[in-house]
């Protein structure tokens, strides 16, 4: 267990997040900056595209609180996400940045934006299929996962777990290439 930076330690959810409509233009700009940070494991997508940014509040002059949600509870990238966000905001003149982890509502792969999905596929990672609002529990591995290299749907599961918690390993039977599949969650 890595000793977490104080700002990245998982904390129980406290006060409910204020509605997004209450966000000021400055907060919006800072949220855009924080959200532009690339994911440490999947640097082709930003944190905003991954859908893990939950909010940002200006608490006072030079004091900002950012809310971040993990993809998986044990995602080890969470701490570097928090550090990267702090650095970007420091560089833009915010001296005091607190990054808070929120769990509720749980992140799902449906939070990944269309642009994020496109970038994943472009980098050879098959994006997750939409789960839909009615889905409950995990969706079995989708029957047809498209090969990000040749586009064939003739692909097979090699391993249910892969290089990170969020991916499974598949192989395309048409072109023979193995590829990662971002699992539906």
């Amino acid at each position: 267990m890595v000793t977490p930076t104080p700002s990245a330690a998982p904390t129980p959810p406290a006060a409910p997040t204020p509605p997004a409509s209450g966000i000021t233009p400055v907060e919006e700009e800072l949220l855009r900056l924080a959200g532009s940070v690339p994911d440490p494991e999947l640097p082709m997508v930003s944190l905003a595209e991954l859908g893990v940014m939950r909010g940002l509040r200006l608490l006072g002059p030079g004091r900002v609180e950012v809310e971040l949600t993990p993809t998986y509870t044990g995602c080890p990238a969470l701490e570097s996400m928090a550090t990267d966000i702090e650095r970007v905001l420091h560089d833009h003149g915010v001296p005091e940045v607190a990054v808070r982890t929120v769990l509720s509502p749980p992140w799902t792969t449906d939070a990944i934006s269309a642009e994020g999905r496109r970038k994943l596929a472009e980098s050879g990672i098959a994006p997750p299929a939409p789960r839909g609002a009615a889905a409950g529990g995990p969706v079995p591995v989708a029957l047809a996962v498209r090969c990000p290299h040749c586009g064939s749907t003739e692909t097979e599961l090699l391993s249910r777990f892969s290089s990170t918690a969020c991916k499974a390993l598949r192989r395309c039977t048409a072109c023979g290439e193995p590829f990662d599949h971002f699992k539906e969650l």
């Binding site: 977490p4 998982p10 129980p12 044990g74 391993s159 777990f161 918690a165």
Partner: peptide, 24 residues
């Protein structure tokens, strides 16, 4: 190798859960 990765991934999920619970 696949099971090595699988068991380590499951362990990681559990560790994440443990961190949240013990922090409570």
């Amino acid at each position: 190798l696949e099971e090595e990765v699988a068991l380590a991934n499951i362990a990681l999920d559990l560790l994440g859960q443990a961190r949240v619970l013990l922090s409570l």
